[in-house]
């Protein structure tokens, strides 16, 4: 089966302000199978967001290839929705107008898309906040609105960049459960960046560990834990711990390398 996303020997160099170039990734190859939930972990600044930008088609790597369902990516990835690490809601649109922007852009009418947007806001626990502007919501609530914004367009690939890191433990578990439920229903391909290894293992089919910059694939760990999973309880089972310790041993070296330059 052709992978949903395939990075084929990509090297990413970003221009720096002093006119030089920063090598973020070298000769990186990674296949993401369709329908898989893949978590990406790695030290801060190693290039996780950059990798998602590449899959999104927002960034172009002249060296190497990115293929989406087998087709080489030339522009914006038409099959993906992207949940950005930063705040990306339009501040001048109300929450509901932000959520229904995707359908609106795809040619649906406002009236047509509105009930659907309400439904999605309800799923992320934001019923009653439809008419607020983003600045009137907390950081975590804005993240949830952004979730609704990316889920409503029913993409085949979900790119998610630390979506839950701003949430408190309880809301976080609710959102993780929602995400797993949604994923089980629709079998989307998910690329999920997180700095929380526990979260990565609890959610994913595979955990990809990136090395410190320039990013290479340090290891790909299959997570053979039973599904459906309860995100809280799964942390208690012994296999979870074994896997955690194994991946953490690998990750710790890289975090240390990144921290000490």
């Amino acid at each position: 089966m052709t992978p949903a996303v395939s990075f084929d020997a990509v090297t990413i160099r970003l221009p720096t302000s002093d006119g030089g170039a920063l090598t973020v990734a070298t000769n990186l190859s990674l296949d993401i199978a369709e329908g898989h939930f893949v978590a990406i972990v790695g030290p801060s600044g190693c290039g996780k967001s950059t990798l998602l930008n590449l899959a999104a088609g927002l960034l172009f790597a002249p060296e190497g290839k990115v293929r989406i369902f087998g087709d080489e990516l030339g522009g914006i990835n038409q099959h993906a929705a992207y949940l950005f690490q930063q705040d990306a809601l339009l501040p001048w649109r109300t929450i509901i107008d932000n959520v229904l922007l995707g359908p609106l852009i795809r040619g649906r009418s406002h009236a047509e898309a509105e009930p659907e947007a309400r439904h999605w806001l309800q799923r992320v626990g934001l019923a009653g906040f439809e008419m607020q502007f983003p600045h009137q919501l907390s950081g975590g609530m804005r993240k949830r609105a952004a979730l609704a914004q990316s889920w409503i367009v029913d993409p085949r690939i979900l790119l998610m960049d630390e979506p839950f890191s701003a949430l408190d433990v309880q809301t976080r578990q609710i959102m993780e459960t929602e995400l797993l439920g949604l994923w089980a229903e629709t079998r989307k391909t998910v690329l999920f960046v997180t700095h929380d290894l526990e979260e990565a293992i609890a959610l994913a089919d595979e955990v990809v560990v990136l090395s410190a910059r320039p990013a290479r694939i340090k290891g790909v760990y299959p997570v053979d834990l039973p599904r459906p999973r309860d995100v809280a309880e799964i942390r208690m089972i012994p296999e979870f711990n074994t896997l955690y310790n194994k991946i953490w041993a690998d990750l710790r070296v890289e975090v240390g390398a990144a921290a000490h330059g």
């Binding site: 927002l58 929705a81 950005f84 990306a88 339009l90 995707g102 852009i105 795809r106």
Partner: peptide
């Protein structure tokens, strides 16, 4: 640029970018 990229990912055309991002901004 983050707002712009977000609306781009929602598959906005150049005209829609103008309407939904550039002009209001």
């Amino acid at each position: 640029p983050v707002l712009l990229n977000n609306v781009r990912m929602l598959q906005a055309s150049q005209r829609q970018l103008l309407r939904y991002v550039y002009l209001p901004s």
